[in-house]
Nucleic acid binder design. Structure first.
Lengths: 291, 291
DNA sequence: ATTTGGACTTTCAAAAATGAAAGACAAACC
DNA sequence: GGTTTGTCTTTCATTTTTGAAAGTCCAAAT
């Protein structure tokens, strides 16, 4: 910061909590045990608090810290804050595990949801040491990680902004699927929803062979299962539907890489880091792409 | 810190206050105006709060931040904390000006007290931009700045610990004072209290000429004014008493430097910095040592 | 009187946070 | 449609904070 002394008008509220911990604990050692904050840090925080308030709150000595009369007066006032902080902690404890919002296309989201139990469980022995809960959001739109619309995105290309971190997880291939090779014609989404490369490709290359549309990817697959037409799917998704068979070779023009993307900063956040590891394991699994 | 991800179990309480400021202000700009915290910092603090709680508290956009339903629920709970913080601020406001504890020998303390109005005043035009109030503690004992027994000490030699910062303010000379040159014999403090170099010097060099003792420096000077004996004083203190005259030349053995001493860290604290400047000005004033 | 243990403060390298300046982007205005 | 304004995010140099290790000092134990 600029070389100007900044007059601190109010102490940090957390310093009041540490102050109570030191008072309750009779010194820095007791407070360290209660709060997990190391003694050198507590020593400096108590000194900073006294300096900011302009009061001597403790007598310091070989047997620890004892409150002065100013300190006792302040401790009585800080009880309100302690009660309010505990109230908040109780409210937050209703949801002990942070949500990690993950967005991907429909089929990827479905795959993750169905296989998530392989890398995540309520069972203590399987749960990563960092608690977190997935919030899966199926979306083909490019969600805005800068504006925190999602914590993790699964995308079809390497992120190019420098503040995004990416990990390549797989190569995704596409093909046609149907009840049998005798089925002709294609089902797809309405033009206004057909924003993915695979939908665009179909409309561009075989516009006259589109015989029907469906309202969403799930319905699209159901209609193909009903025998009405063919559908273009990622091969890992088509193979997951026993009623459908692959009826064309891979469509080379649609093959792309898959990238697991997050904000550069967020990678260091334990829940997000744990989620990245778990999802990365799932997406890279050999079983995803065949026996 | 060690290279281990630290799972944050609770957000900073100050972040809750900033969260309310952003919510109230409709965005970062409004909150910046209300709190003085710059927008980039607020942006990161809100992101950190959401991450720690595992909830999305705001929708972000070109028109600012708006609360999500999770955000509104949290805001309702944080009101308790706001009330408690305001209660504390009101309590602290009863003493808006921090005390700066200054220790010095008796005569130096007296000099500062009598002349303090020259560098400090309630009048706004004279008050330094940093509010503070002196707490003068007269003590010949070496107070423990490490243990915060004082913020500033006025000592008779350069500080030798590296964590102490010092500024030389003056050269202090001593001499004998009495009602007149015809007065013989010396008054001093009892042996148990005679801890200063000048008292030790007297007991060492003229033990047979001590005719009386007094309970404290003030009484010592009063008895000299009463004509009972001579007293050894710093010359600036003796000259401040019109009833006494200097009856010896300077006592070279007692001359020493005067140092204004504080903790290295504390120098950057605005109240202490202002106090150091004010006291330094007083102690260095030419008028302290003569017309 | 000496040694040991306990508790606080200081050192200093590393990590984290900050804020001015710049970049990005959408809404409002002309 | 082009320009301007407002608000948020990113960059990056600087400042602040942290915590393990070491130092200091006093009370308790021997």
């Amino acid at each position: 910061m600029k070389d100007k002394p900044k007059l601190k008008t109010a102490p940090k509220l957390d310093d009041y909590m540490l102050f109570l911990a030191v008072a309750d604990g009779g010194g820095l050692v007791g407070a360290e045990q209660a709060t997990g904050t190391p003694s050198p840090t507590l020593s400096r925080r108590m000194t900073a608090l006294e300096r900011t308030l302009g009061k001597r709150l403790f007598e310091r000595g070989a047997r620890g810290y004892t409150l002065t009369s100013d300190g006792r007066a302040l401790a009585a006032e800080v009880e309100h804050l302690r009660a309010a902080a505990q109230h908040l902690a109780a409210f937050n404890a209703k949801q002990t595990r942070p949500l990690v919002r993950i967005t991907a296309g429909h089929w990827t989201t479905q795959y993750i949801a169905r296989h998530f139990g392989e890398v995540w469980s309520q069972d203590a022995s399987l749960v990563p040491s960092v608690p977190w809960v997935p919030e899966l959001v199926s979306s083909d739109a490019m969600v805005d990680i800068a504006r925190r619309e999602a914590d993790i995105g699964i995308r079809n290309r390497r992120p190019d902004q420098t503040w995004l971190a990416g990990r390549r997880t797989a190569r995704i291939a596409y093909a046609e699927f149907a009840r049998g090779p005798e089925v002709t014609g294609y089902i797809t989404l309405p033009e206004s929803l057909a924003t993915t490369p695979s939908k665009r490709w179909l409309r561009h290359n075989k516009p006259d062979e589109i015989v029907s549309t469906a309202s969403d990817p799930r319905a699209e697959a159901d209609l193909a299962i009903g025998g009405i037409a063919r559908v273009i799917l990622p091969i890992f998704a088509g193979r997951a539907m026993p009623e459908l068979v692959q009826v064309s070779p891979e469509i080379d023009a649609l093959t792309h890489e898959e990238w697991l993307v997050s904000h550069h900063d967020a990678r260091h956040d334990p829940p997000i880091r744990a989620a990245l590891d778990a999802i990365g394991t799932l997406l890279s699994a050999p079983t995803r792409f065949g026996p």
